[in-house]
């Protein structure tokens, strides 16, 4: 079976390994008959298709799991939902169809809340970045300093104000809890606040939302934002119009025709 899951609230600070462990333990508590690998040290057969980096939230993470025997997926979904911690929610479960799931994850839509930079400055930066062809940024990796082109992977980038609707889940539900201050409570913060929505192609090396933020700083000489909260809104194939296609759609269609 394949599933989409979320990473919200405090769980944004977990690494992928942390989250995988959380999930495996939930499987055991819920008594899910998951298939195990053979060998000296058996592991549950779960393939994680990519993963949002530490510090970043997501509404659209994907994985595939093999069961030891068939069980009703609705039951599985229900049992896991009641066992997983707040913030990690199984949004959808479908029977696995043919074709590779990771291959369908070509690009992501990211939503980044930025605080501490004037909205007008942000707007100028976004426009400059859109107009650029290539913007190189540096990132520290385990192998040392690495340079990558943040503009090349960028399919689209737009800026919205605090009151703008239609940019995915609102700040509260994305961040999971009341621990996020509501910007519209303090008018002076609204002016120094913006929501950036961008579509980024998955490339090697991978370009992360913070790389794009760095690119904005490079092109417009912006200061470092006080807060920058990124959330992945969707993942999937890019169609010709630059929109992202639900990666579970083929599985869903196949299950429907069975």
């Amino acid at each position: 079976m394949r599933f989409r899951y979320t990473k919200r609230g405090h769980l944004r600070f977990t690494s992928h390994r942390d989250l995988a462990r959380v999930f495996e333990r939930a499987l055991r508590r819920a008594g899910v008959p998951v298939a195990y690998s053979e060998g000296y040290s058996p592991h549950p057969r779960i393939s994680w298709a990519g993963a949002a980096p530490t510090g970043v939230a997501s509404e659209a993470e994907y994985a595939e799991m093999q069961l030891a025997r068939e069980v009703p997926l609705a039951t599985l979904h229900e049992e896991l939902r009641s066992t997983l911690p707040a913030g990690m929610d199984i949004a959808e479960v479908v029977p696995a169809g043919t074709g590779s799931l990771p291959d369908r994850l070509e690009a992501s839509t990211w939503r980044v809340e930025v605080e501490g930079i004037d909205f007008s400055e942000l707007r100028r930066a976004v426009e400059l970045l859109r107009a650029s062809e290539s913007v190189e940024v540096e990132r520290m990796t385990k192998k040392g300093r690495r340079t990558l082109d943040a503009r090349a992977a960028l399919v689209d980038i737009r800026l919205h104000g605090a009151s703008t609707s239609g940019v995915g889940p609102d700040a509260e539900s994305v961040s999971g809890a009341s621990d996020v201050p509501r910007v519209d409570d303090c008018p002076d913060r609204v002016q120094r606040y913006g929501i950036i929505v961008m579509v980024v192609r998955h490339a090697t090396p991978v370009v992360r939302p913070d790389d794009v933020l760095k690119a904005l700083r490079v092109v417009a000489d912006l200061p470092t934002p006080e807060v920058a909260r990124a959330t992945r809104l969707e993942q999937g194939r890019l169609d010709d119009g630059g929109t992202i296609v639900d990666p579970l759609a083929p599985d869903r269609a196949a299950a429907g025709t069975r």
């Binding site: 508590r29 008594g31 549950p44 068939e70 069980v71 009703p72 039951t75 229900e78 049992e79």
Partner: peptide, 18 residues
Amino acid sequence: NSGTPVRNTAFESAGGAD
């Protein structure tokens, strides 16, 4: 004997994907 140390009766009804 089910791969996990917890027996969940929800999974014990006749199986089959829905």
